[in-house]
Amino acid sequence: MARNIQSLERAAAVLRLLAGGERRLGLSDIASSMDLPKGTAHGLLRTLQQEGFVEQDEATGKYQLGAELLRLGTSYLDVHELRSRALVWADDLARSSGESVYLGVLHQQGVLIVHHVFRPDNSRQVLEVGAMQPLHSTALGKVISAFDPVAHSEAVDGERRRFTERTVTSLEDFEDVLELTRARGWAADVEETWEGLASIAAPIRDRRRMPVGAVGVTGAVERVCEDVTAGTGVVGSAAPPGAAGGAGGAPAEAELRAVLVAAVRDCARAVSRDLGARRF
């Protein structure tokens, strides 16, 4: 049997001591009830305090459990909270891009659409909130797979179905796509899920920079991509120099309109900022 780590055991004991009700204890109480020298107890408390698991009352100097402990249990972001935070920014993205906007989060083995703004042309459109999209082929799915390790393993382990000729299905190529996505901070889907449609998406993060979802635009490939003849193998000007080399095995990507990429990333940053500004 492996030896236990003594300092972790002691830290756990401190937390138990402080747990339950509104308990506040001074350093000497903690040290004496654990039968430890004050210096050792103080070292434990200081480390726990740095991690946010313990807080010290400024006035009395006494210790209590920290807010971070509560967050550990409830750190998931409510998707309806996410939608209400994203509402104005998603509207603005739809207006500036002229395309429909989708906001998605990881759900089981796919992307759950939690918010959808119509393309602003007043044509008849159907609200797609609640629909699922695949992780491996859509822009939203690629972004989530690239930044969220749980999504990544789902996408790697799951079936990567071929929807069109352009769908990336091999693991190696898929990992290259995710690598590129991480490097440039956004992902695209040019006719990899639906013929004739292209998407661009970027990650939304919470205040601890954890990825919570993705936002993106979807529209006709002719509008979302620059006017290029298909299959020229030129990587978009919106990608950083060198990205073309990095994406070696992946299929050539049509040139995405830089102004759309910028608008999507601005929107993602704005929503992230809004989430960060808020405490739980």
Binding site: A183, A262, A263, D266
Partner: peptide, 14 residues
């Protein structure tokens, strides 16, 4: 992870 957060110009199209 080295995502550069440079300000993208020309994004807002007011």
């Amino acid at each position: 992870m080295s995502e550069t957060e440079n300000q993208s110009a020309g994004a807002s199209t007011h």
